[in-house]
Every structure is written in C-alpha cells, then in structure tokens.
Design a protein around this nucleic acid. Structure first.
Lengths: 340, 340
DNA sequence: GCTGCCTATGGAACCGTTCCCATCGTAGCT
DNA sequence: AGCTACGATGGGAACGGTTCCATAGGCAGC
C-alpha cells in the first residue's frame, strides 16, 4: 500500500517557503525576473529548488491564453518521409519555445476530424496539417478563428491556408529531364490512386504534360500498391511490349518505389537496363544493386519552413518563407542505361 | 486588417444560450449527461453546436487534475522501430481516451532532461520512456511522486519502474539456433557500442554466452557504424581468416544490418554463402537479393503493452501484462548456406 | 519638510472548468 | 395530509497560475 502523496507543489507553497507573495514567485518564473531584488530571487530559487517546483502549464495557459502548443496532423506516421518532416517541425518548435503535439490519423478521415477536435480542446496555437481526407469545413473554422494553419505536402482546395512542401512540378521535370538524358524514352509512371492527395494529382498531371512536351512515350499505372498482381502484370506488359526506346519506371513516392522493385525482381528485370527512378530518398536505396536513382525531398527544411510559416502568421509579420522546396537528384545505377 | 475575434466560446455562453446553468452544461460534456432531462440535453446540444463550443481541456485538467495526457520520450524518432512502437502506444492511448505527447531527444541526454521537465509542466498522467542516457535521478523523482512510468526497450538500472520490450535473451538464442541449424559455425556479432543502452548490453552478453554454450566461434565488433572503414576492415578480416566452418554475421539492430550489407556489397561477398541475419525487420529486407533473414520485433504489441502497463499502474490493478515479447523469426535467403 | 517619482512587493480578480452542496418540485409512503 | 426521498437544476468555491492596481519605502528636488 504505497499511498504516495500525489501532490505537486504549487506556487503558493513556494511563496510561503520563500517568504514572498505568489505574485513574486510568478514573476520569477516568467520573463520579469529582473524586476525582483537579488535577495528575493535567491530566496525563491532556493525554495523552488527545495520543493521541486514546476509551474503548471495548464493553469498558466488558462489565464494567459498561450498554451505553448503546436498541433500536427500526420496522415501516416509510418511513412519515413512524414517522420523526417516531423523531425524538422519538432526542432523548429523547440527553437521557438513551443511544444509539438502530434496526432497520427492512419489516413482515416474520420480519425482526422476526431484528432482535430482534440487539438482544439488543447487550444493549440498553430496547426501543421498533413491531411488524408479533406476536412475543409473543420479547417476553415480554424482559419476563421484566426488560428494559424499550414498545409504540409498535401494541399486542400477549399481552405484558405499556406502550403509548404515539395515543388512537385520541378521534381517531375527534373526526373523527366534526367531519364531522357539517360536515354530512356518509354516511361511508365507508377503511383497510388490520386484520391484526394494533391501531390499525387500534381505529379501525375505534370508527368503527362512533361512527357507530351518532350515527345516521350508515357503510360500510367495508378492502383493501390497492395494489389501486387495487378502491378506486376502492368509492369510485365509494359516491358514486354515492342518498341525501340529504352524503358524506365518513374515512381511517385517511396512506397511505389518499393513495390516496383519487388515486381521487377519477380519479373527478373535488370535495373538499369530497365530504368527505375523514384521520388523520396530512403536509406535502402543505395543498397539495392546497382543503387536506385531518387529525388530526395529536403524533409528537414520542409518541416522547419512549415513552422517558420506558422510563426510568421502568429506574429503577423510579412516575412515570407520558402514554400515550395526543390528536390535533390541523386543519381545511381538504376538509371544507367547500358549502351545498346 | 483582419482583426479576427480570437475568442473561443465558453461554457458560460453556452449556458446562457441554452437557458441553463454552467453546471448543467458541464454535466452534459462530462459523463453525467444521463442525469439531465431530455429537454435540457436538446437545448444544450443545440446551443453548443450553434456556438461551436469545445470544452477547454486546459481548464478541465486544472480543476480535475486529469490532463488526459501521456508523455513519451523517444531516443531516436527516425528509427523505424521506435516509430512502429510509438504507433502502438498511440493507438492504445486513443482506446483509453488519452492523448499522447511525444518528445524526441535525438539521443541527447541533455535534451532528455529538458523534455522530461517539459512533460512535467503539462502534468502528464503517465510516461513511456525510451531513454538515451540515464536520467535516473529525474525519473526516480517521478516514481516517488506516484506517476506511472514504463521503460521501453531500454532499461535503467537505478529506476524502480516496469520494463517493456523484446525478450533479448530469447532473441539471441533463436538467432544462434537458426544460424547453427543452417550450418554456420563461425560468427561475427555486429553492434553499435553498448554505452548505456541496455538491450545492446544484454544482446551482446547473450551472444557471448550462447556462442560458448554451443561450441561456436564468436567474434564481436562494437564500433560506431559511421566508421565505415573500420567496419569494412573488421568484416574483411573476419571473412579472409582461414577456418573450416561457414561464416555468418549477426547484426544487433536494423542500423547494423544496413551497415553490414553495405560493407558486404563493397567486399563483393555473396549473401548466403556469407550468412547474414539481423534483429529488426525493415521493409527493404525482402528486397535485397536473396532476402535478409531477420528477427522481427512485435512493435505494435510492445507499444500496446507499454500502455497497458501504465493503465495497470494508474488503476492500481494487479493484472500483469506481458513485458518481454518474443521475436518472430523470418527466414530468407541470406541464411541459406549453399551445400559445399 | 513636502511633493513626486520610481522600485520592490503584495492583494485580489480573473481565466474556464469541476464538484460539493443547496434548492425546489413532485411522487411515494404511511 | 404530512413526511421522506429522489431527480433535476443552479450557486459558488475551488484549481494554479497571471496580471492589474495599490501600497510602502527611498531618494532627489524644491
């Protein structure tokens, strides 16, 4: 029966022990410490340390209105891209003295709504959103209440908020330029169904336009990656078809790249001879012989600029931060087309 | 000049609009809804909906003492293992009506202390700790204040708290049994320096004992994985040494596996002929030809049982949950020793 | 010595809830 | 009818801070 005294010391107790008023103790722990006499400061410091006092952030934000919290909605926490961006967001928050409250939604719009409501009850001061569905109605309410809001990676048409993420048009251009330069002329674009996810839509559109503009052959396969057989059949058909140009696969994201490699291995295709290139750099891309060519997203930078955006909105400043970030091309063996 | 009314509606406003008292509205939003008359309920529902009311969790926890928050300290958020466990923790929290506040510490003990203090100010009701350093003093304070605390993956000797994680001894046994059965008799164990990280220590010790018990040859390389040259030299020496038994590498975690594959590729070793096996299943393990044999940790289960543990401590119940989880052996080509 | 200002400090109201206790009406019982 | 019991509701004191305003003392200037 360990009936522990579940009691956190309060400001009043510190005040008593330090022979001061709670106002003074409060001043000590906010930014007004310098207004106190050295003697008073010493007494409070001693008392607080002795009692192990920690200000109650809940009470603090109740009166002051500042929760010190930034909320973040992540569509899929198990996606390394999301985690990397989140890492950047967290670092930037810390530098601004804010804490991050992350909610994963597992790509479920219902959970998304739910978690959004939750974040509202904690009175977060800003929101970074990587949405799965389109909770436009809910978000618009936030906007109208004046709460800063940044859309990450995925745009939402009906919400009047800033967007931060990859410059998808530039990415696809870069990819097509590279593939063409390497001698690939017949392309298969692999993506999960575009659904509501704006980057998928943008990338797909850019691919189709870019292929046409360059006079390349371009095909598209947009099916759930879990349907492994369909994917394999599509790739098999693509490779088997007659044609005189070298063939390459362009994968819309890391998951697609993973699935493509699996399929190509099953089909016995040789990477390089069949070109392969993907958006998103993952740590295993250099391990698959002969290395997978990728477009790396500047994840840290994206995360940080999301917070920068938020801070700008909070302080009403007009400093603009970079919103659409350029990818970095990492060339490896999977796009080295062997000379005929 | 959009001077938005940064004003969240309060319980009092809802009460006024519903012609009720704040007590009744409060009851409506807590678990006492059934005590209200149907008419009253309807009025409150209408008013709340109309005004877009959301209870203020800050005020709520100030009065009630229940923040509804669980804190989690993660040593390295970019480690897929950590993320997978975190996912389990989050799900379990949600099922219990709790929210998760995750703090990443980037393996930095100083940050660890800092984030721990932060979580204290938010009055989290429980703590899941995957520690980098050994903030024993701080944690012991939590324990003494009666705040439930669970150590995840990494144990701390001086803290009187529950541990949840992999059954490391069983994992190493399983690995050695498998390697021996596959005909490998000369083993190199690859790990990052054990430092404070308890699972690394345990795994290493078990390896040494297990090797001795089985009459196998066992060597160890415990250096930072970033020192790629040293690693490669060590592996090279290991492979070049004369001996009549088949050789295999056993990797202590996912990072070690990654580094080992890189080194083996550079050395031109053939997987299988040189055995390779690692703890931690990662999505690319099946992609590297001929597939990497792994011991998968039941990450979801570990995360969930961490929360279960916490809940048990919170409710003072004596139900015990599984603490040390069994790994799952996933056999692939990297441990198929070709017949001589 | 009096006024005036500035610094160090304290008192008390307030932030948005919860919860204890009081009130009121009515149904059930003797 | 009178009393109790109970169900529905409201009033007001917390919770642990912040912050406005008041006060006390010290010192310069006249």
């Amino acid at each position: 029966m360990t009936l522990t005294a579940q009691h956190r010391t309060t400001i009043l107790e510190v005040a008593r022990e330090a022979r001061a008023s709670k106002t003074s103790v409060s001043r000590y722990f906010s930014e007004e410490r310098k207004r106190l006499s050295p003697d008073m400061q010493a007494r409070i410091a001693a008392a607080a340390c002795h009692l192990g006092y920690r200000p109650n952030q809940m009470a603090r934000s109740l009166k002051g209105g500042h929760s010190g919290l930034i909320g973040m909605l992540v569509a899929d926490i198990r996606n390394p891209f999301s985690v990397a961006v989140m890492h950047g967001v967290e670092q930037a928050c810390r530098e601004h003295g804010l804490s991050l409250m992350v909610c994963n939604t597992d790509n479920d719009p219902a959970q998304e709504r739910e978690r959004l409501a939750l974040l509202a009850t904690y009175r977060v001061e800003g929101l970074v959103i990587n949405a799965a569905g389109s909770p436009d109605r809910e978000l618009q309410a936030w906007v109208e209440e004046g709460i800063p809001l940044v859309l990450l990676d995925r745009e939402l048409s009906d919400v009047d908020a800033e967007f931060v993420g990859l410059d998808n048009a530039q990415a696809i251009d870069l990819a097509l330029d590279h593939l063409q330069a390497q001698g690939y002329g017949d392309l298969l674009y692999l993506s999960e169904p575009t659904d509501q996810a704006s980057p998928r839509q943008v990338r797909l559109t850019c691919f189709l336009q870019g292929v046409a503009a360059r006079g390349l052959d371009g095909e598209v396969h947009c099916q759930p990656l879990m349907e492994h057989d369909a994917l394999q059949r599509a790739i098999g058909d693509f490779l088997a078809r007659s044609g005189k140009r070298h063939r390459a696969l362009l994968c819309a994201n890391g998951n697609a790249t993973l699935a493509a490699i699996r399929a190509l291995q099953t089909l016995g295709a040789r990477l390089g001879e069949t070109g392969l290139m993907g958006i998103d750099e993952l740590d295993w891309c250099k391990l698959i012989t002969p290395g997978i060519t990728t477009l790396a997203q500047p994840t840290e930078a994206i995360g940080r600029s999301a917070v920068a955006c938020l801070m700008a909105l909070l302080s009403d400043s007009t400093t603009t931060t970079l919103r659409r970030h350029a990818p970095e091309l990492i060339v490896r063996g999977s796009t080295q087309c062997p000379a005929p």
